[in-house]
Design a protein around this nucleic acid. Structure first.
Lengths: 215, 215
DNA sequence: GTCTATATAGGGATAGAC
DNA sequence: GTCTATCCCTATATAGAC
């Protein structure tokens, strides 16, 4: 996937920047820190990126690109809608668990921690739209149970992101008990099961049909 | 509850600071902004709070105090555990919906957007502990279904917070359809029902018993 | 493409008059 | 308790040598 161990300075900067932006936020990240960890002088950063904001955007775009690829890969191809959803959830949980810093950046951005006069891009809305459209389509074909797809998708995104980003800070003692690969699998099963209960047509759906049904 | 319309400057500062800290984060908030909106000079802020960090802590403490009060009020008194949980959830959703800025501050803090060399207080862990202990107790008494209480509480907190803070930024178009008091009620019913399905002893619990069961 | 040195700006904080 | 004026530091960004 990558270009091998011979990665350029630009890639190394992006990598380090992602870690810092996730950990300390845009305004909390000093270019000095990034330069130091990369092993170059602060001024040298400006040879690769014209400004801090451009660097931020580059990190964002890279993250969005990979996320979108995973979503498309899971939703394309053959199979019934529910099993595609399952694949998507599993891939999503893996992605978040593997890149908590990136997830933190997305969360921060969604809270408004962006450069001043920053134009929120339509990327997040487009990604959400992909999934929501897929669920809606499955529902129209009566292959998925009727439930507001937006509420479902947002709920899942919020839960999963919160688990792997906030919990370690909020409840470190407890998080230590949730760590490790085995627990990623547990979260995965948990989320998959929850969503399946909501979307399986055969099962009892409860009042899920009207709850948050704004569509 | 309040001291009436004759609120002092200190209270006004806290109010404005909360709004800005939620909207732009600690490092993104300029004391200049706060002073301007309050209608005083920047230097005058230092008469009320010795530093930006002290102001931040004051805002945090106020928020934690009110949240803890709501939790205790819901869990104390008479009634079966499940109906107390229901009261708690309803009060919590109302609280978050009424104070999205405050919720944003908590979320930001849980992401690590804090003053440098800031000591994370044990407050959040204590609040979570209150609820988790209550659920555990109900489970030991066989009045609540067995499910990892921490996973449940964290999941709910993450979902609700995400709904009222990130969604407006992430998907403004869709959020406009979710706005208004009527939709707060919908979210409330949605969350209550989800939790009830997980904790009701009579109903089928599915594999919720082992999912995330790390206790 | 990386360095040293420096420009420029802005933000937190203080001093002291009123 | 609020003001004006100012200090001091740090952070982004630039200039120009190597």
């Amino acid at each position: 996937m990558g270009t091998g161990p011979e990665r350029g300075t630009r890639e190394r900067i992006l990598e380090v920047a992602e870690a810092f932006l996730g950990e300390r936020g845009y305004h909390g990240t000093r270019l000095h820190y990034i330069a130091e960890r990369v092993g170059i002088q602060k001024a040298s950063l400006f040879h690769h990126f014209p400004s801090k904001e451009h660097l931020y955007r580059a990190v964002l775009e890279q993250g969005f690109g990979e996320t979108e690829e995973i979503i498309r890969r899971a939703l394309e191809g053959e199979g019934d809608p529910l099993s595609k959803i399952r694949s998507l959830l599993e891939a999503y949980v893996d992605l978040v668990a593997a890149h908590p810093e990136r997830t933190k950046i997305f969360l921060r951005q969604s809270l408004g921690d962006v450069p001043s006069d920053f134009q929120q891009s339509a990327d997040s809305e487009r990604l959400l739209g992909l999934v929501v459209a897929f669920v809606s389509e499955g529902q129209r074909a009566r292959l998925l149970a009727p439930m507001d797809p937006l509420a479902l998708v947002l709920g899942v995104v919020g839960m999963v992101a919160f688990f792997f980003t906030s919990v370690p800070v909020l409840a470190p003692v407890w998080f230590s008990r949730l760590q490790g690969a085995a627990n990623v699998e547990r979260v995965k099963r948990h989320v998959v099961e929850m969503v399946e209960r909501c979307l399986k047509v055969s099962g009892k759906v409860g009042s899920g049909a009207d709850a948050l049904a704004v569509v």
